[in-house]
Design a protein around this nucleic acid. Structure first.
Length: 412
RNA sequence: GCGAGUGUCGCCAAGUGGUCAAGGCAUCGGUUUGUGGUACCGAUAUGCGUGGGUUCAACUCCCAUCACUCGCCCCA
């Protein structure tokens, strides 16, 4: 039987690993400059964390988790990382650390779904979580960090949508209003919407079913949706976010139907989409989750964050990475070659040689194909004289130098 | 969970019932045993995802199965 990687997983092969590293280096650069610290949490957690953290009514918890029982404990491969970071925040009393606490992470996530373009069962996310600030200025900063990162990767054609879904209190009354406005024609909505009606009526607003869309376009229902239902405090928060975004010159549109599929969000939610991705067009999603820490039995702490799908970022990046050696050692004497390569590497050069000890011509061919700047020729003559001959593989010029002088030339 | 499409060498592929399964890239060897990248010559699929069936004959037709891809739902 042929062994293959499980459905929805992918090997990251050498052909793309340079790109991954490039992306990760950019992320680290930006997070360092923005005073974020990295956190690494386990790849699996107690199942209960996700049920309580992500939410019982979400698709993620209901049908997408990789859950297994080990010695009577139910464990789950993390489908997202906010719940895990919050768990660590609480467990390690991080509310006592200097405020605000700005964290970033990257790593694999797991969701049991049918794979398609821009969606895998094991995929990677990079994200941030900021704890301890309730002001909208941090929402804006967090969004700005996301946009900076995307720009730094050379990704264009993106659109930012923001919304404020209110706090638990004002959302409750909005829920009821939506339910009552939808109720007369509830029978006509799709099956999923019937479930949403009971569990999370806000989710009905972004149903993709054409019939449901049509029903929602109904004037009366539409009025309820567009009505400014959020309370004065939430409204003020939203207004100041908009001001901060304008100060930062960030373009955005307000989308009142943006609700997002994770239960923990409140107030600010946002999404960055690309028109170049196919149907899974979200590159970045995030928002505020002021109640999650408390819900998981921590000290009440406001928080905001986002996550990006790294595979999707990679699909949008248009970066060529040149890889080449500084020097390739060509020698008829494998012992000398081995020793010389070791010295060159420790002196800071990217160096290699032909371990198979092929014929001179073949070694030079290897040097050329390895995209090396120089071939360092170390034949009998050079060994005797204690010199290196350097051949510039672009210009074909070749000259013999004392060893230390040769090193200086390579460095140029 | 539902719907559609595709599976021929490491990669890209032609062949669509009848000699040896084109070609290109890559790889390896040689021309050239101390001078490469170009050029030329040569090598590389007892097999066309897998298992059945139809036929004198199957990569080509039929059935099943598996894998992958795309879409729905949902998300990053």
């Amino acid at each position: 039987m042929k062994l293959t990687a499980p459905k929805g997983t992918k090997d990251i092969l050498p052909a793309v690993s340079d790109l991954w590293q490039y992306m990760e280096e950019k992320a680290k650069y930006i997070f360092d400059k923005s005073n974020y610290q990295e956190i690494r949490t386990p790849i699996f957690e107690a199942t209960e964390l996700f049920c309580r953290g992500v939410g019982d009514s979400t698709d993620i918890v209901n049908k997408e988790m990789y859950t297994f029982i080990q010695k009577d404990r139910s464990l789950t491969l993390r489908p997202e990382n906010t719940a895990g970071v919050v768990r660590a925040f609480i467990e390690h009393n991080m509310h006592k650390l200097p405020n605000p606490l700005k964290l970033w992470y990257k790593g694999p996530m797991f969701r049991y779904e049918r794979p398609q373009a821009g969606r895998q069962r094991q995929f990677h996310q990079v994200g941030v979580e900021v704890f301890g600030v309730k002001e909208a200025s941090i929402d804006a900063e967090v969004i700005q960090t996301a946009i900076w990162f995307l720009k730094e990767l050379g990704i264009g054609g993106l659109a930012l949508e923001v919304n404020n879904i209110g706090c638990p209190e004002c959302r409750m009354s909005h829920r009821e209003k939506i339910k009552s406005s939808v109720k007369p024609r509830l029978e006509e909505f799709c099956e999923d919407c019937h479930v949403r009606y009971e569990k999370n009526p806000l989710r009905m607003l972004d149903c993709k079913n054409p019939k449901c869309k049509e029903l929602l376009a109904n004037e009366e229902i539409n009025n309820v949706i567009n009505e400014d239902y959020i309370c004065p405090a939430c409204s003020e928060h939203f207004e100041s976010l908009k001001v901060y975004l304008k100060v930062l010159n960030i373009d955005f549109t307000v989308n009142k139907r943006l609700v997002r599929g994770l239960d923990y969000y409140n107030r600010t939610v946002f999404e960055i989409t690309s028109n170049a991705l196919g149907s899974q067009n979200a590159v970045c999603g995030g928002g505020r989750y002021d109640n999650l820490v408390e819900m998981l039995n921590g000290q009440p702490t406001p928080a905001v964050g986002w996550a990006m799908g790294m595979e999707r970022l990679l699909a949008l990046m248009n970066v060529q990475i040149e890889r080449g050696l500084d020097v390739f050692v060509v020698s008829s004497d494998t012992k000398e070659a081995l020793k010389t390569v070791d010295e060159l590497r420790k002196a800071g050069y990217i160096a290699d040689f032909d371990p198979a000890g092929k014929k001179f011509g073949k070694q030079l061919e290897k040097a050329s194909k390895s995209n090396a700047k120089y071939a360092l020729i170390l034949g009998e003559d050079e060994i005797k004289a204690g010199t290196y001959s350097l051949k510039n593989l672009q210009t074909s010029e070749q000259q013999t130098f004392p060893k230390d002088e040769a090193l200086k030339i390579i460095a140029k």
